[in-house]
Design a protein around this nucleic acid. Structure first.
Lengths: 108, 108
DNA sequence: CGTGTAAGGAATTCTGACACG
DNA sequence: CGTGTAAGGAATTCTGACACG
């Protein structure tokens, strides 16, 4: 019936106050992680931050790392690396789909 | 890896201003539909309304009905009826799962 | 480095009401 | 009936800064 399961997880609709409640982090912390480029809220015309459920998960992961003593700079590096891997996999997947290029033999 | 796809669709995290943007309805309209018991936002301790993505869909459906000229009272009746059907189906499904009671012969 | 806080302003949300119809 | 609006107050969010360390 109601056709469409949009990208709920990616829709930026949560205010910082609500994010603070959900994640248990202070607004100060959340804004700081943005300053350190670990998270990227959408900005409304008026300038308020809006987050997605994906951002919730991302913040939780960041919080864990921080508790483990990892510095924001390191966390950022890890995330950039992970994003790169994802991009590489997507490209390989597309090539594979179109030309039948097999996966790397190093993959299990 | 990150295990859990919570009930994003049911989490009440969206403020009325954002709802207004998403649905295209005025805040006045959204509050009025609540007054007519068509929608049920969560209330924070401080009293602000919070909606879910399910509420977004619900509001869109309500808006359609209103445009067709259906009155809020009728919309409410339809929704109550639909909810009842869903409950009945769930009960029947559970009975069926436990005791193997067949579906009604009236079902296709 | 990561986070708390007070500061002042701007934007949000709330309710009850008057209006039109 | 459904919706717009002005009204006044309360709560939210924003930024830049000082503080501790």
């Amino acid at each position: 019936m109601s056709a469409k399961y949009d990208n709920y997880k990616d829709k930026k609709v949560i205010s910082i106050g609500t994010m603070s409640e959900i994640t248990g982090l202070s607004e100060r912390q959340i804004r700081y992680y943005e300053e350190r480029k670990l998270i990227f809220p959408h900005r409304t015309k008026k300038g308020t931050r809006k987050y997605s459920f994906n951002d919730v998960e991302r913040l939780m992961e960041i919080a864990e790392k921080i508790e483990e003593g990892v510095q924001t700079f390191e966390i950022r590096k890890e995330m950039l690396k992970k994003d790169k891997e994802i991009r590489d996999n997507m490209i390989r997947g597309q090539l594979n789909a179109r030309f039948g290029i097999p996966k790397s033999p190093y993959d299990k």
